[in-house]
Simulated scan of single mutants.
Amino acid sequence: MTDSGAVVYSLHPNCQGGDHYFSDSGHFYIIFQEKGTFRMTTNMNQDTNAQEHTLPPNWKNNLYYWAVQDHFNFLKPVSDWGVEFCCAFSFQDNCADVYSVHPDVLNFLPGGLSVTKGPTFGIWENIKTIKNDSNTQLTWEKKITKKVGYNKEKMTQITHNWKIAASVSIESGELAKLIAKLQLSFSAEYGGSHVNTENESWNETTEVGELLKFELKPNERVYLWQYKLCLGEEPVLFCRDLTIDDEPNPPTEVPLPPAQP
């Protein structure tokens, strides 16, 4: 599929600023969450045959909207029953049918991993404490071992039940990696950490050695900290650089740049 021959039109002022856009059966639908309305029109450039209606209660504050053959569908955020798939038979229908959403579907959707696995978060791990218990200064020099990279084994598990067509150029392992990257970049609203991890190693996790040398004062302690990003209870990414200080409490700063909008 290509975008050759495409034509770009400006949006009519009445059609601008929507939170969700979808189309079906010759109409375009625009959801305005803050106003609590949706607009339907046959032409978003001219705002032709436009109507605006109040959103039924169950249509408000959902994550995804689409329509197929005059059936309106949307996904509701997590409730007591988990994420719900709702189907309405007209724009006046509050919500005719409600179904649960299968975890394999959620894993593929932006933010879905935060529902099936848990939200992402970053944590500093103390991988080594070096101390000089003597009354004289000493030189400490050793190779320390740390994990670096992406937890491919755990993340690839989300693709086990997916069927990827042979014509698709990406493998399941690479797709899982891409989904993990995106999940980490999302805002907290979607269970992400809002960090950019492009400069980190996304190769499969391995143990690497790093030679360190310190001058330790008498009775001094030095703490080696490594930052890792987790998804629920599982570590997803072990960052490369270490932070070294004399504080027993973990650092407070996030060593990764914020994700770009």
Rank of each mutant, 00 (worst) to 15 (best):
M1R: 15
S4D: 14
G5P: 05
Y9H: 09
Y9F: 09
L11I: 08
G18A: 15
Y21A: 04
S23I: 12
D24I: 07
F28P: 03
F32E: 08
F32H: 14
F32K: 15
E34F: 09
T37F: 06
T37L: 05
F38G: 02
R39M: 11
T41G: 05
N43T: 06
N43V: 02
D47L: 01
T48S: 13
A50R: 14
A50K: 13
L55T: 05
L55C: 12
P56T: 10
W59I: 06
N62R: 07
N62I: 02
V68F: 15
Q69E: 12
Q69N: 15
H71A: 13
F72I: 13
F72Q: 09
N73C: 09
N73E: 12
V78F: 00
D80P: 01
D80Q: 10
G82C: 02
G82S: 06
E84P: 00
C86R: 10
C86P: 00
A88G: 12
A88R: 03
D93L: 02
C95P: 00
Y99Q: 03
V101Q: 01
P103E: 07
P103V: 01
F108P: 04
F108Y: 13
L109R: 09
G111R: 02
G112E: 00
V115P: 05
P119V: 02
I123C: 10
E125H: 11
N126H: 08
K128L: 13
I130L: 06
I130P: 02
K131F: 14
D133A: 12
T136I: 05
L138F: 11
T139R: 15
W140D: 10
I144A: 03
K146W: 00
K146C: 09
K147I: 10
K152P: 05
E153H: 05
E153I: 08
K154S: 15
T159A: 07
H160Q: 15
A165P: 08
S167P: 02
S169Y: 08
K177D: 05
K177P: 04
L178S: 14
L178M: 06
A180V: 00
S187Q: 15
G192N: 00
S193G: 10
H194P: 05
T197Y: 04
E198L: 11
E200C: 01
E200N: 01
S201M: 06
W202K: 03
N203V: 13
N203I: 13
N203W: 10
E204S: 14
E204T: 13
T205S: 05
G209I: 06
G209M: 06
L211I: 15
F214T: 11
L216G: 02
E220Q: 14
Y227V: 09
K228W: 02
G232V: 01
V236Q: 10
C239D: 01
R240N: 07
L242I: 12
L242S: 03
I244R: 14
N249Y: 15
T252A: 10
E253R: 14
Q260C: 13
